[in-house]
Design a binder for these strands. Structure first.
Lengths: 130, 130
DNA sequence: AGTTGACCTGGAGCGCGCTCCAGGTCGTAC
DNA sequence: GTACGACCTGGAGCGCGCTCCAGGTCAACT
């Protein structure tokens, strides 16, 4: 199957502009073209886009994704370095999750204080200003 | 206690420039000044900065933090709206954690594949290119 | 034949969150 | 008294990740 840029955008959740942008900055191999010169994305292109959006969700900077993309183009020989990038990213994600969980606790604490203020606990007035 | 901008930066983990920037954009009440006109941050200022950095860590945009800061200046009457902001943010953080955990699984899957490739599993060659 | 609409290209512009700079004022140490 | 270093102000600049625009091509429909 092949997909127009509009369809690829719809399926990947990226905008048309972003698809062209990703191609421009070498995140994405230039897709095939139809007879009229229009982009025709393959299922593999879409799978790659899906993976890219995952990496993006993890907070990986585009610079790093480009590095990964470049390695991918070199084939199997680069598997080790690609794995290293993913392992590093896994660590970063785990750290980020821990960080967010810590913040969640702070939020819960604060929210709890606001609850008590609503119930008229005057002793918390000072807390309310912080 | 009061702290010079350098000391406040050290303690908050923000840069001196960022402290002045936060003040400029109304995230931070202008701190007191010493006789020479230099900023003198109080412990309360530092506590607020600590909270701000937590909010930042959760990914709250500055725009929203300003809103919260503005409400805080209005005192107790705004407690309800401040709480609402924190509750919303708690939801956003929980969602983000879930998202990251899903990505973690994808990363683990990919890393696992790379492990197998290293062990010479030729059947995974195609996978390696993705 | 004309209109529409999806697509094309190259390049400019934008919102975010800082970060850096020039040029100046103070207070302390030598 | 002068050199230094920390601080001050207003404003420009930057890296990121898009997003938008002008001007054009092409295929399909009426």
């Amino acid at each position: 199957m092949s997909y127009s840029i509009a369809e690829a955008a719809r399926r990947s959740g990226l905008s048309i502009d972003t698809l062209r942008y990703y191609e421009r900055i070498d995140l994405l191999e230039p897709p095939a073209r139809d007879a009229a010169g229009r982009r025709a994305y393959s299922d593999e292109d879409l799978a790659w886009l899906t993976f890219l959006t995952r990496l993006r969700t993890t907070g990986m900077p585009i610079r790093r994704m480009r590095e990964y993309a470049k390695l991918r183009r070199r084939g199997l020989a680069s598997a080790g370095r690609r794995k290293a990038i993913l392992v590093e990213q896994r660590g970063a994600v785990a750290e980020r999750i821990a960080e967010l969980q810590a913040c969640l606790e702070v939020l819960d604490y604060k929210i709890d204080n606001y609850d008590r203020i609503e119930k008229g606990d005057a002793a918390l007035t000072r807390e309310a200003s912080a």
